[in-house]
Simulated scan of single mutants.
Amino acid sequence: MKSLLGALCFVLVSQGVGGLLHTFTDGSFDLWALTHRIGFLDGYEVYASTVLLVLGVAVGAAAEKLPKDA
């Protein structure tokens, strides 16, 4: 379970950072981010990327609290 949450943490953080980098560099990180490809998020990409980043950090913190896998 801990490794699954760690992988989810990595995906969420990388998508959050990638989305912010895509927005602030005018599209240089086109392959990294998925938030700019989702139609209903038009105009809200920064907010969605920030939420993904914060959620990824929270999942990573929760994964650290779990006991080690046996």
Score class of each variant (00 low, 15 high):
F29S: 06
S14V: 00
I38K: 02
D69T: 04
L66V: 01
E64W: 00
A33N: 14
S14L: 12
L66I: 01
V59W: 05
V51T: 10
L12H: 09
L12S: 08
G27D: 07
V17Q: 01
A33E: 13
A48S: 14
T25A: 08
M1I: 10
V13N: 05
T25R: 09
L34E: 06
V11S: 08
T50I: 03
T35R: 02
W32R: 02
D42F: 08
Y47A: 14
F24V: 12
A70K: 14
F40N: 04
T23D: 15
L66P: 02
G39K: 11
S14C: 04
A63S: 07
G60N: 04
V57W: 13
K65I: 00
V11H: 04
H22Y: 15
E45T: 03
L8K: 01
A62Y: 01
T25W: 11
L12E: 08
L20I: 11
A70P: 13
P67G: 05
L20R: 07
V13L: 13
L21P: 02
S28P: 01
G6I: 12
L52P: 08
G56Y: 04
G18E: 12
A33G: 14
A33M: 10
D30E: 12
H36D: 09
L52I: 02
I38L: 05
L34I: 11
V59C: 06
G60F: 03
R37M: 05
Y44S: 10
S3F: 14
S14G: 00
T50C: 05
V13D: 09
F40I: 10
W32G: 06
G16S: 11
L4Y: 14
W32N: 09
G56L: 03
S49Q: 03
Q15L: 13
G6Q: 15
D26K: 09
L53I: 12
Q15D: 07
F29D: 07
L20P: 12
L21R: 01
R37F: 03
L52V: 03
F29E: 04
G39E: 14
F40T: 05
H22W: 14
T35A: 11
A61H: 08
C9E: 07
A63Y: 07
G39R: 06
Q15V: 08
L20S: 07
G18M: 11
V54N: 05
L8F: 07
F24L: 13
G19T: 06
Y44R: 09
V51W: 13
A33C: 14
R37N: 11
W32T: 12
S14D: 00
V17E: 03
G6N: 15
F29V: 05
D69M: 03
T35D: 13
S28L: 07
T50V: 09
V13G: 06
